[in-house]
Simulated scan of single mutants.
Amino acid sequence: MEKLICALWAPQGESRADFGAHLLAELPDALKAAGASGIRLNIRDATVEPAAPLVQQWQQPQQDAVVQFWLPSANAIFRERIDAALAAVSGRFEAWLTAESTIIPNKEHPPHAGERTWGWSQASFISFRPDMTREAAVAHWHSHHTRVAIDTQANFEYVQNIVVRPLTSGAPLYGAFVEECFPLEAMTDSPAFFDAVGDEEKFAKNTKDMADSCAGFIDFSRIDIIPTSQFDFAHLDKA
């Protein structure tokens, strides 16, 4: 099985709200019919609008949604129905083949079939520093930064996806996609994000440690970080 991450853009003239509703109503069933499993949608909806100040942008326009799923093979000759399903609901889509590593599984607030998952999900498309080899960047990410991200944040789900290769010709050259889930208050309360409510010393340390670690491998000029609502459709695998 191979995991795909797909960025989706709304058709011209369709609002982000209407696009999200359209995706939720149609895309999971269409992808399942085309052979996908483990389907998850990340939607930029009204619930996550308070987190707008946390957005970091490279792409113009920026992604409106993300869909994640698994296929027996991501090879182009076996992906035609998947690509057709994505094209039918979006103005543009780009796709990457990834390798998933679940650092913190969501055991505290597990998703319910087709419903919005508790809290909110920060979806991060990141690029590695150009002055580092890919191997060195990944080594810092996996051997140093992962521990920092666990220790300094209030994330109750943390999934790393390293990009193996782009699958579409227009796909931005990201190095990875990361999904982290937080409590809703972390959208607007920085100490809540950094697991330091009521502790100024801890807040200062956690923010510095996280910033220093990110600077050790991320190219901040080529990242897209978006707040999303997570909707998991893994229940469709049993249908």
Rank of each mutant, 00 (worst) to 15 (best):
L8A: 01
L8S: 05
A10S: 10
A10E: 05
Q12N: 11
Q12M: 11
G13M: 11
S15N: 08
D18S: 14
F19D: 09
F19P: 09
F19L: 12
A21E: 10
L23F: 07
L23R: 11
E26V: 01
L27T: 05
K32V: 12
K32L: 12
A33P: 03
A34L: 07
S37D: 10
R40V: 14
L41W: 09
L41A: 12
A52K: 14
P53M: 10
P53K: 06
L54C: 04
L54H: 02
Q56H: 14
Q57W: 00
Q59P: 00
Q60S: 10
D64N: 13
D64Q: 09
A65L: 06
Q68Y: 05
W70I: 04
L71S: 05
P72H: 09
A74K: 09
N75A: 15
F78Q: 07
R79Q: 11
I82E: 07
A84T: 05
A85E: 08
L86M: 03
A87M: 04
V89T: 14
G91Y: 01
F93W: 09
L97F: 01
E100F: 01
I103V: 15
I104H: 07
P105G: 05
E115P: 02
W118R: 08
W120C: 04
Q122W: 11
F128D: 04
P130C: 09
M132Y: 12
T133Y: 03
R134I: 12
A136G: 02
A137C: 09
W141L: 13
R147Q: 14
R147H: 13
V148A: 06
A154K: 02
N155H: 03
N155S: 13
N155K: 01
F156S: 07
V159C: 06
Q160P: 01
I162H: 12
V164T: 13
L167I: 11
T168L: 05
A171D: 06
Y174H: 15
G175P: 06
A176R: 06
A176L: 08
V178Q: 09
E179I: 13
F182Y: 14
P183T: 15
A186F: 02
D189I: 01
S190R: 13
S190Y: 07
A192I: 10
A196K: 08
A196V: 06
D199L: 07
E200C: 00
E201L: 12
F203V: 04
K205T: 14
T207V: 15
D209L: 15
D209N: 14
D209I: 05
M210P: 00
A211S: 11
A211N: 12
D212V: 05
D212T: 13
C214D: 11
F217D: 00
I218A: 01
I218G: 00
F220W: 14
F220C: 04
D224K: 02
I226L: 15
T228D: 02
F231V: 12
D232M: 10
F233E: 10
F233N: 09
H235S: 13
